[in-house]
Amino acid sequence: MKLRKIIEKLQLKVLTGQENLEAEVTGGYTSDLLSDVIANSKNGNLWITLQTHQNIIAVAKLKDLSGIIIVNKREPDGDTLQKAKEENVLLLGSEEKAFDVSGKLYGLIGSKD
């Protein structure tokens, strides 16, 4: 399923990177531990997390994730937004909890692993 459709269904707010919404999402990965995401997420996954600091951008970039969903109405730090723009990483915001976002995303695309 394309990012655009997922953003619409999950009512996500696009914070940065709206130019690449036609990319296909390969699955999701929910975790707040950076090493876990680095080790276990897959190319094209949407990453669901409550982390808001700038180091999440390098992780998304390094693993070619399709984007990051920051949950629970949390706002990314200013330097996170700045870095996401520079690196062309899609940052999304949700008002819901990680459990709910993950459940809804699973309902839409299932697990490809």
Binding site: L33, L34, S35, Q51, H53, N55
Partner: peptide, 8 residues
């Protein structure tokens, strides 16, 4: 910050 998982 999500570091220090002891996975490095």
């Amino acid at each position: 910050m999500g570091f220090g998982a002891g996975m490095g």
